[in-house]
Design a protein around this nucleic acid. Structure first.
Lengths: 344, 344
DNA sequence: TTGAAAGCGCTAACAC
DNA sequence: GTGTTAGCGCTTTCAA
């Protein structure tokens, strides 16, 4: 008779063959019942399902992956630089949302910080390919990736958190320019006749462009533009500069929450009051913006929506050659840092 | 002749057979060369390695997983409750450190928030098992897990972030009691004759016990103990209570950074100054504690060390029956929230 | 509607 | 030292 269920302890997992035997059918029928692919007689199907339940059978995903070329898994590559990505609540929220979206579709997620240079990313993509990963979401860092090289690996990929749209690259990103316009307009609506900018100062950076354009359009003096990387330290340095000015700008648009948090700290230290002396609006709308002091008014990126769309874009891709950029609008979340709001 | 390399585009990945053919050896020799397991003549090995390089061959991990029962992958289960785990920088840092430790060992990581109840965790462990995951790190939430049930799944697991040591459970955790002692002593060293506590009020909670014992040992009045869950909102509520007191405690020990952040916000709102009116020390030492205002003095958990140990514990496990709790000491990181430090 | 059998790519026991 | 071969558990023709 062979071994019956051994005493408690890590027992061997049931395989498709065990199920088939117990249901008195062939292996194939088990597959048909479970995955479809061929019609199965009602009675047969019931016996199979019963056997599955009795045995607590669960298909071996490794075997499935080998045979079908799909591990039912997605990969997420986050930029691993001098600033730990996971210290950025925006990425953290994004990663979380992607995992949730993948799971809803029955996919698992490999998530890994990777240096954002071409070679490292290629290595990681290759590793994913050997694991039969179905698609990879890449959050780029500094430096750009050559789409052709990545394509040649043969694994579907999609670029997240895109700032500059690129031909031949399937990508997803927030409407940075539109968000910057929202933020700047709001500061101006508060009555400020001068708005400063802290962030990446580059004609091609949409947040910078949005701020610039809005100041010009509304005939408002553009306060100084202070350079800052997207982290707290750099924002702090900019904040110190602001505090040291003879005539500090009464309104500041910071290109990310992290920058704003740094600015905030510097102003606190120098006894400059936010929002009384300086009104501040930032970008991202991550949860950290909510528990800062004062809480930050910020342009909230539609993270869940973008995550959902990312997973869908890669999983539902039909024509591999139809590549495009998908842009998502954010909304301004009003809190305390921009000043008191009057009823409209 | 068959097909030669097709024009650029996702080409078929080379398999072990391709390498064998090109090197003029059998499949087995390729395996021997790559994995060891049998001696290979120097010259042969060189030819194989050359072929591997020429073809850019990388072993198919799905096939490996099927054959060997190991996907070279670890799983990390985070508690998914009403409070999103990824809003807690402590978990975020921990997850990041675990991923890095796993990667250093050549392992990938599945990371997933999961409701911490028994059924959900079992389901997830089973899913991991079908994917031939080599071991799972479980961060428990509310409610306890039955080790016997988890063991029966047959996949090695380890409990992280452990508060209460349990027999029969392999686990890792910080020295919470020792940390609470450090924090409380420090507040007392600042000259305060009364120290309050905000956190979980339970005789079995080590942070609570450490605070209690230290106050008694040093003959200091223990200020009120205010209940709080481990999140910002709850800390905020406690902070409001503190601010509303006739005679607020001059020193507070908060059981986590998140709690402290909430307390801080409440005190700000009520115009209570930290550290002048209230000195504050918290627990965890996550990065968010550094950019709060004022920056938090906090007991830093040795996250990297614990992550490293977690991965090692599960991968280097020899005797599956030798289970124990591994405890790690934290250290007090001095910042501003506890008050000015005089030279020792 | 069901079954037999080939094969995904790799490993390892066994033979030479 | 090297080759042959039998699977790991599953999917999928192809036949019956």
């Amino acid at each position: 008779m062979g071994m019956r269920e051994a005493a408690p302890g890590p027992q061997r997992r049931a395989t498709r063959a065990d199920v088939a035997r117990r249901a008195g059918v062939s292996d194939a029928v088990v597959t048909y019942t479970l995955n479809g692919g061929a019609p199965v007689a009602r009675a047969t199907a019931e016996r199979v399902l019963q056997a599955v339940a009795d045995l607590g059978y669960q298909p071996n995903q490794a075997a499935r992956a080998l045979k079908s070329g799909s591990a039912h898994t997605l990969g997420l590559i986050l930029p691993d630089g001098p600033d730990p990505v996971f210290e950025n609540p925006f990425f953290t929220e994004f990663a979380n949302a992607v995992e949730a979206a993948a799971r809803r579709r029955g996919y698992a997620l490999y998530m890994t910080p990777t240096p954002p240079d071409q070679t490292s990313v290629v290595t990681r993509l290759n590793d994913f390919a050997t694991r039969q990963v179905d698609g990879v979401l890449v959050v780029p860092g500094e430096g750009s990736l050559d789409p052709d090289v990545l394509d040649r690996i043969g694994i579907p990929w999609l670029q997240l958190n895109t700032v500059h749209e690129q031909v031949g690259v399937d990508s997803i990103g927030a409407d940075l320019l539109g968000g910057a316009v929202l933020a700047t307009e709001h500061l101006i609506a508060h009555g400020h006749r001068q708005v400063a900018f802290v962030g990446e100062i580059d004609e091609r950076e949409p947040r910078y462009r949005g701020w610039l354009a809005t100041c010009e359009r509304l005939g408002v003096e553009r306060g100084p533009a202070l350079p800052s990387e997207y982290n707290r330290q750099s924002g702090y340095a900019a904040g110190l500069e602001i505090a040291a000015m003879d005539r500090p700008p009464a309104a500041v648009f910071a290109a990310s929450d992290l920058i704003a948090l740094g600015v905030l700290r510097a102003l606190h230290e120098r006894g400059v009051s936010v929002p009384d002396d300086v009104a501040l609006v930032s970008f991202d709308g991550s949860w950290e913006a909510e528990y800062s002091w004062p809480a930050l008014t910020s342009v909230r990126q539609p993270i869940e929506e973008m995550a959902e769309a990312s997973v869908a874009a890669i999983l539902d891709r039909t024509a591999p050659d139809e590549r495009r950029h998908r842009m998502f609008r954010g909304e301004l979340v009003l809190r305390a840092s921009c000043g008191v709001h009057r009823p409209a």
